[in-house]
Design a protein around this nucleic acid. Structure first.
Lengths: 339, 339
DNA sequence: ATGAAAGCGCTAACAA
DNA sequence: TTGTTAGCGCTTTCAT
């Protein structure tokens, strides 16, 4: 690999001169400048980032630590873009890391990003339970860290899931709906305890908004999933039928099951049932674009980077968490005014 | 930040001794070893990767270069996992990079991963057109690079899309189907030219397999999308109806449109129509799990890493591309035997 | 305008 | 078993 020295020797100048030319720094005579420039191009010189890191005591890089679930990490592409571009704007790199599967339970093993000095700070996107040892490790190393999608009082950046559910509810109310349900046929009520905080926040956002508007909320979620699929279906069919059946539903989960229920009841979307989806997984409901309550994940990522940069450059003390109003309704084809 | 020197001074030993202790290298007396270990823990020493990189002339990191489309990158999580874990097994890091949007057309600007020495090699995942200047830049710098999902003769790793489509076709034939179509209502025939090679490969895989089996293939794809949505629908309805209508369809694209057509014709999946999907975007067709022809992207990633490591450690000459048989049919609920 | 020296954190090679 | 030396690529400081 070509180093400054190589260019300097070839050009018959000092390393400093080459460095100055490459970075448009200092004053260099026109003749030398041209000669050096040419050699830099021809010999394919590129500055060595590791050397720079050592000098500046700075890596100009941030790490992104991912949780894993069943061996796969969750990283939405818009979030990645937001983080990457925000870092790139500061000439910083993004280093990705996750824990190999076996390590999730083992408290002793630690991601290599924490074992070595490689990055100036860490973004942590844990959609599931955050291992205690990880938190302690980070505190001990006093490595600047920002948590994404977590709900601690400090050092977190997260979307306002409560507000998002509230928006979805109000959206349906504005369309004239009154009997609005929130459905989650994918998870039993008895499993909710360990779930990600956003699930709870959304339920609360829905519940409180309904209450504020003087409407009675109904959360359609099975007590447990241990029953057979047919039993679940039969139960859910009951929930969605009758004279006072919901005319609109906010979908938290269990798309397939809900599909089956509505098919059984011959309820068409959006004619007989309006639906709003939290925009994460799929895009269509049959032939219809989804009406989504979705989060601007790119913004989430860039805000996280901003907070991290602040902690890298300034004091490393805990910073109050940020709850961002970055959720909004994206109109689609699965809702219509109640006639 | 704590360095070897800090520990050495504190312990009253040489830096080498500390280094040896930290890496279980060389022979160190038990007393000193313990003392050093304790200080390392208490003072929170972690080796500086940049310093190591300089010494070893190696970064122990690979870059992953992503293409962008409408401002977002495409990076399937399984692919990411495959790449990451394969690198981690070699104690290597993964650095992510993509071109900011404006740069896609501009030939002058280059991702910072190429402007600086930061990684030992590059994985390139360009799902769309690969910019010429990028290729030249890489060749000029003789930076080891492996292309993922591209179809050059050398230095590529890609799934066997042809074979995957063949598998999907045979799967349906084994279920008794004979009138099997391949549908792509999402893209006009006149747009196919610039499309990713895999789209063409899949069409070819389907076409040739049908021919080999003595069956007549039919590719249901509009000449152009410039017609109105209603016109397209009317045309497609014609394609899917009649006495010799397809009993099974391989879905290349245009899910929503196809949904609309089948609904119009009152054709139920899977009772009246079996469907196989290339497993990338969605997961269900209404209430049914998709039957998918999907690629083991994790394997794709790890194979790409293997190839890259080979080029980093060995000769950098071009290596014949790898076409991997990593596609398979994942049974779901959208197919059934023809009765 | 240009260059020499020193040092960032680390380790291979050698000396003691 | 332990320590010293030298040098990886770079830049800040200071001298010329």
């Amino acid at each position: 690999m070509v180093s400054l020295r190589d260019i300097a020797v070839e050009a018959g100048v000092s390393e400093m001169t080459v460095s100055n030319v490459v970075h448009n720094r200092g004053r260099v005579g026109e003749a030398k400048r041209r000669k050096v420039m040419e050699l830099v191009r021809n010999m394919g010189y590129r500055p060595n980032r590791a050397a720079r890191s050592i000098r500046y005591q700075r890596f100009d890089a941030a790490g992104l630590l991912l949780s894993t679930d069943l061996g796969r990490s969750y990283l939405p592409n818009p979030l990645l873009s937001g983080i990457h571009d925000s870092l790139a704007a500061r000439s910083m790199h993004l280093v990705l890391s996750r824990l190999p599967d076996e390590q999730l339970s083992s408290p002793l093993i630690v991601p290599s990003l924490l074992e070595e000095l490689t990055v100036d700070g860490l973004l942590i996107n844990y959609t599931h339970a955050i291992p205690k040892p990880l938190i302690e490790m980070i505190q001990k190393h006093s490595l600047p860290a920002v948590w994404i999608n977590a709900n601690h009082r400090y050092d977190c950046v997260r979307p306002d899931d409560f507000g998002l559910a509230a928006k979805a509810t109000k959206y349906l109310v504005e369309l004239g709906h009154r009997r609005i349900a929130l459905a989650d046929l994918g998870v039993g009520r008895d499993q909710m305890e360990g779930m990600h905080y956003s699930r709870h926040e959304r339920v609360e956002g829905y519940r409180q908004t309904m209450a504020e508007l003087g409407l009675s909320g109904r959360i359609i979620q099975p007590e447990t999933l241990r029953q057979t699929s047919a039993e679940l279906l039969a139960w859910a069919v009951g929930q969605f039928s009758g004279l006072d059946r919901p005319t609109a539903t906010i979908m938290q989960g269990g798309y397939r099951e809900t599909h089956a229920v509505l098919e059984e009841l011959k309820l068409k979307v959006p004619d007989d049932m309006s639906m709003v989806f939290f925009g994460e997984t799929q895009k269509n409901w049959g032939r219809h674009h989804l009406t989504m309550a979705s989060v601007d994940e790119a913004k989430l990522g860039s805000e996280a980077v901003d907070m991290l940069i602040g902690k890298i450059n300034g004091p490393r003390d805990p910073v109050p968490s940020l709850v961002l109003p970055i959720g909004h309704i994206v109109p689609g084809e699965t809702c219509r005014p109640l006639s």
